[in-house]
C-alpha cells in the first residue's frame, strides 16, 4: 500500500514502491527524475476529477457488441519444444533455465 499524503505529492518512497511492483531498479538520480515526472503527469491527470461520472459505467470494451467470444474445445497443434525455447536466454534439457527462484509465490 502506498502511503497517502495530504498534499497529493508523489514521494520518493512512492516511486520506489511502484518501481518495486514493476520490477524496475532505479538509481537515486532516476528516482528523483521519475518522481518529478510522475508528479507532474498525475497533477495534470487530476483534472479527471472535474468530470461528473456518477452512474457512468466504465468502458472496458469500447464496443458493446463485443461479447461471448469463445473457441470450441478442439485441439490445435502445439509448437515444438525447440521452437518454444528458440528465444530463451538460457535453456537446458528442454527446460527454460532461470537463476534460482528463492521467493515463494
Amino acid at each position: 500500500m502506498i502511503e497517502r499524503t495530504s498534499d497529493k505529492k508523489i514521494t520518493r518512497d512512492t516511486v520506489r514502491y511502484v518501481a518495486d511492483l514493476a520490477r524496475i531498479s532505479l538509481g537515486e538520480e532516476e528516482t528523483d527524475i521519475f518522481r518529478e515526472h510522475l508528479e507532474q503527469i498525475l497533477k495534470y491527470v487530476e483534472q479527471l476529477e472535474e468530470v461528473d461520472t456518477e452512474n457512468v459505467i466504465p468502458t472496458t470494451h469500447v464496443l458493446s457488441s463485443m461479447k461471448n467470444i469463445f473457441r470450441e474445445d478442439i485441439p490445435a497443434p502445439s509448437i515444438s519444444p525447440e521452437e518454444a525455447l528458440s528465444n530463451a536466454p538460457d535453456k537446458a534439457d528442454g527446460f527454460f533455465k532461470v537463476p534460482r527462484v528463492i521467493k515463494e509465490r
Partner: peptide
C-alpha cells in the same frame, strides 16, 4: 477439457517439458 483455457494446446499431463505450448 481437451484443450487449455485460452488456446488449443492439449490439456494433458506428463508430456515432455515445453511440448504442449504455443505462442
Amino acid at each position: 477439457t481437451e484443450t487449455k483455457i485460452f488456446c488449443g494446446c492439449g490439456n494433458v499431463f506428463g508430456d515432455p517439458p515445453n511440448s504442449r505450448v504455443c505462442p
